[in-house]
Design a protein around this nucleic acid. Structure first.
Lengths: 244, 244
DNA sequence: GCGACAAATCTTGCATACAAGGCAAGCAAG
DNA sequence: CTTGCTTGCCTTGTATGCAAGATTTGTCGC
C-alpha cells in the first residue's frame, strides 16, 4: 500500500520532517526555510535540501521567491477557499463510496475521538491542531485509497497553515463535535449522511475563518495608516531572527 | 486562477514538456529518462533536469531506481485500481457540487465533444487519447477549483500510462458516448445523474482494462523492431532470446 | 559451446565552487 | 532629519567534478 505513496518513497527525511512540522503546527506560514540552515540541521549539503524543496514545491507546501529564499506557503483568501472546496469534494466523495465500517475501523476512529477529547481536556492546542487534521486522514486511510490519503495529507497541511493565518479563535470543541457526528453516522452505516455532515463540518470551519485578515505585513501596514485594530502584529515580529 | 497551480509556477518547461508528452501518449510507461539526454535536449545542466525529476517524482509521474535511472512510472494493477478509485471519488464529488452550467461552459464542453468526434473520424488515436483525458480536466476547470484541476491532471497522466499498459483495445466510441451522456446530464441540470454517469463511465473504462497482463519488459525493443505486440501466448516465452 | 569472472562504461548521488541578484546597513549630500 | 546612493553580505541559481554502484561486454578457463 505504501508503494503507492510517492512521498513515502522519498529517500531522505527532510520532506516529511517539514510536512510533519506543519501538520503539528510547529512552523508558521511564511516561515523562511534557508537552504543553508536546513543543510546544517540535517547534516547534508544544500543539494539535497534543494531537491527536497523542489518536491515540496510540487506539493504546494513551499514556494520560492527567486534569489530571496524558500518560504512555507501563505495561502491567500482565495486559495484558502479553494483548499476547502477541494477537501469538501474529496472527503464527501470518499465517504459516499464507503459502504461499511470494519470493526478495526470503528476502533481506530473511536480511539482518535478519545485522543481529541483528551487533548481538549489538557488544553494542548498544538496537539489538538494535529489531531483535528489527522481525523480526516484517518477516514481516508479507512477507505484504503493511498493516493487520496496522500492528497488529503497535503491539503490538510495547507489547511493548518490557513488556520494559522486566518483562524482567530480555535473552536476545538465545535470541530470535535463535528467529528463525533461524522463517526456516529458512519457507525450507523449512513455514509450519505456522513458525507453531508462532512461538508457541513468543513463549511463550519471555513466560515469560522476571518478571510478578510490580510496575512502580509505590507497590507497590514497600509491598513494601520488608516485604522489600527491589528493586535496580532506581534506575530510578524516573531519571525525576525535574532543574530548574536 | 493559475496562481493556485504550483505546477505552472515551475520555472523551466522540462516538467510540463514531459507531462504533456505523457498526456498525449507520446511517452510510454517505463520509458527511461536519462538525466544526460534530457540535459542535452533542453540545453541545461543535469542539475536542472534533476530538479524537474524531483518535482515529477512528488507528483507520481516518474520514479527513480537508485543508480539505475529515472523512469516514467509503470503503474501496477493495484495502483491502476487506486488511480481509478481516486478519480471516481474526485470527479463524482466535483459534479455533485456543481449546480449549474454556464453558457460558456456549455460551449466549451460541446466544442470538446466535437473535437472528440472529429478525432474519431480521423482515426487519430494519439490525439484521441489526449482528448479523452482532457475531457475530465475540462469539467474540473468549469468547476473552477484550480487545485482539483492540477490533481486531476496528474491522475489523468497516470490513467493514460495505465491505458498504455493494460488497455488492449481502445473503445474510443464507447468513451465518447459516455462523455456525451455526462454532458447531456449536465445540460439538463441533473448533476447528480452526471456524477453517477461519471462513476459508471470510469468503471466501464476500468473494466475494459486487462489488469492480468503483466507489463512486457521487451515492449520497447519489440516496437522499435516493428514486431507485433505481445500476445498472451507469446508472453510465456517472452524471456527467450530472439533468434537471428 | 558454455559458464563465470572481471573490467570497462554508463548511470545517478552528492558535494562543492562560483556566479548573479536582492537586501540592508552605512555613508554622504541636500 | 531626510533622501538617495553605494558597498558588502547573504541568499539562491547553476554548473561541474568526483565517487559509488549497476549493467554490460569481453575474455578466459573448462
Amino acid at each position: 500500500m505504501q508503494d503507492l505513496s510517492p512521498q513515502q518513497t522519498a529517500q531522505n527525511g527532510i520532506d516529511e520532517a517539514i510536512v510533519s512540522a506543519i501538520l503539528s503546527a510547529r512552523i508558521r506560514p511564511g516561515t523562511r526555510l534557508s537552504e543553508n540552515q536546513l543543510a546544517a540541521l540535517f547534516d547534508v549539503s544544500r543539494t539535497r535540501v534543494r531537491e527536497a524543496m523542489m518536491r515540496l514545491e510540487a506539493r504546494g507546501i513551499v514556494n520560492v521567491s527567486p534569489r530571496r529564499g524558500w518560504f512555507v506557503v501563505e495561502p491567500s483568501a482565495d486559495e484558502a477557499m479553494t483548499v476547502y472546496g477541494a477537501r469538501r469534494v474529496i472527503e464527501a466523495g470518499l465517504l459516499r463510496t464507503m459502504d461499511r465500517l470494519t470493526e478495526t475501523g470503528r476502533t481506530i476512529l473511536n480511539a482518535h475521538l478519545a485522543e481529541e477529547k483528551a487533548a481538549i481536556a489538557a488544553g494542548d492546542r498544538q496537539r489538538l491542531t494535529c489531531l483535528m487534521g489527522d481525523f480526516h486522514i484517518r477516514i481516508a486511510e479507512l477507505a484504503g485509497n493511498a493516493i487520496l490519503v496522500d492528497i488529503l495529507r497535503d491539503l490538510t497541511a495547507r489547511t493548518i497553515l490557513i488556520s494559522m493565518l486566518y483562524q482567530s479563535d480555535f473552536h476545538a470543541m465545535q470541530s470535535h463535535l463535528g467529528h463525533c457526528r461524522i463517526v456516529a453516522a458512519m457507525e450507523a452505516g449512513d455514509f450519505l449522511k456522513a458525507a453531508s455532515l462532512s461538508v457541513e463540518h468543513l463549511d463550519e470551519v471555513e466560515t469560522g475563518l476571518d478571510l478578510t485578515r490580510r496575512p502580509d505585513p505590507l497590507a497590514d501596514l497600509r491598513r494601520s495608516l488608516s485604522l489600527p485594530p491589528q493586535t496580532l502584529a506581534s506575530s510578524s515580529k516573531a519571525s525576525r531572527k535574532a543574530k548574536p
